[in-house]
Design a protein around this nucleic acid. Structure first.
Lengths: 217, 217
DNA sequence: TCAAAAGTGTTCTATCTACACCCATGT
DNA sequence: ACATGGGTGTAGATAGAACACTTTTGA
């Protein structure tokens, strides 16, 4: 890569808001900045856009690198300027949804990636707090009229797990009976026929999403 | 500006989907490309991002240049790569809504800007047809739960004019009585007390938007 | 037998849809 | 007087919200 191209590639960054549910609450994957600028702060994972590929490819590649998973829901959020006041640059933000139990965090001394509860984040580098807030807002809206929750859960799940995801994002309780009716009537999920025993109570039926591609309803 | 900076600035473009209603149908403002690449085709107006300002400022400046209006609704759509296969670059697309009767088109021989009906567009430069389709989809959705229609109309308007806007975007007829009830109940508009006479029929009351800032409902 | 979560139906309420007639004006 | 678009109310259908008891299991 020529010196010119190296310089050029610093102009455009891709950053990722990777959301997962941990302990029933939405968490975001953050890394620790060990280099300037904003050294010592936590920040969203990201990288430079490689001019030889599309933005989407760059984001997807970073997503796989951070989570070890291939088929997560990934959507562009927006593009901002001025991450860093000193060097004019633009950052294209994406958000992704992941089943946190399936994610394999990178174990790197330099970055120390980890899950952080969205409701109690520290002050992050750049405008990352704002970017995360926007992502949560978009996810909340989109949960209501799409099946993107598929990306927050394992292939098979109980209706209670599904409801937990909705309640974690909406942060308000949902009536169990109405939720079941609505989800089943939507056609987005179907029973697998299997049941799961996990405690001193009636076993729960397992469901799956009828499609694991994003669908608007 | 140094040679390096000139080169850098070519990497990021801002393009605008400016939508207005002409003859009861949605139209988009296009310009004629008189230079390579894609010479001779029509395209969305746009320009290079100036690294000394924010993306939003660049878009707004271009918007004023094309329409002569300051306070239009402007929203970022998304960012794409590969407008031109040869030189890797990214384009940040915005859409704006304008009262076409208030717009003063630039009268430039080189660009020849004009309004084109969205439903019968020619093949445009780059992926502009796709960008416009996405903009229309977003506008259609947003009309339902916001007041962005304010930007498509003059300050004072009749309920019929407002309904025409909605029908032009949705491309399906709406019941007049239900529409009036819903709009008035929403609180987004209020009567001005004035009436407008324009023909051999009962005069219509004029309304205004209670707010000319974007509001979600 | 007890605790804990799963499963299930009905009533009420609010919202959306469909629909027809009179009113004010200019010609 | 007539043609044109503005203005109004009601009834039926649909979707969402509220709400309590029985079932199955493990300890």
């Amino acid at each position: 890569m020529s010196t010119l191209e190296e310089h050029l590639s610093e102009d455009v960054a891709v950053i990722l808001v990777i959301i997962g549910i941990v302990d029933g609450k939405p968490h975001v994957l953050l890394v620790h900045r060990s280099a300037t600028p904003q050294e010592g702060k936590f920040a969203l994972p990201g990288g430079k856009w490689k001019r030889t590929e599309s933005l989407e490819s760059s984001a997807l590649q970073k997503l796989v690198q951070e989570t070890g998973i291939e088929n997560l829901y990934l959507e562009q959020l927006f593009t901002t300027t001025g991450l860093d006041q000193n060097t004019p640059s633009i950052a294209v933000a994406y958000f992704a949804l992941a089943d946190s139990n399936s994610v394999q965090l990178r174990n790197e001394e330099e970055w120390r990636p980890g899950w952080f509860a969205v409701e109690s984040l520290p002050e992050l580098a750049f405008d990352n707090n704002l970017v995360i807030a926007q992502a949560m807002s978009r996810i909340g809206a989109k949960l209501q009229y799409s099946n993107i929750a598929y990306s927050l859960l394992p292939d098979e799940f109980t209706l209670r797990q599904l409801q937990d995801v909705y309640e974690a994002i909406d942060t308000q309780p949902i009536d169990r009976r109405n939720f079941r009716k609505k989800m089943l009537a939507s056609g987005l999920i179907e029973a697998t026929g299997k049941i799961r025993r996990d405690g001193a109570h009636r076993p729960a039926q397992l469901y799956r999403f009828t499609s694991r591609e994003a669908i608007l309803i």
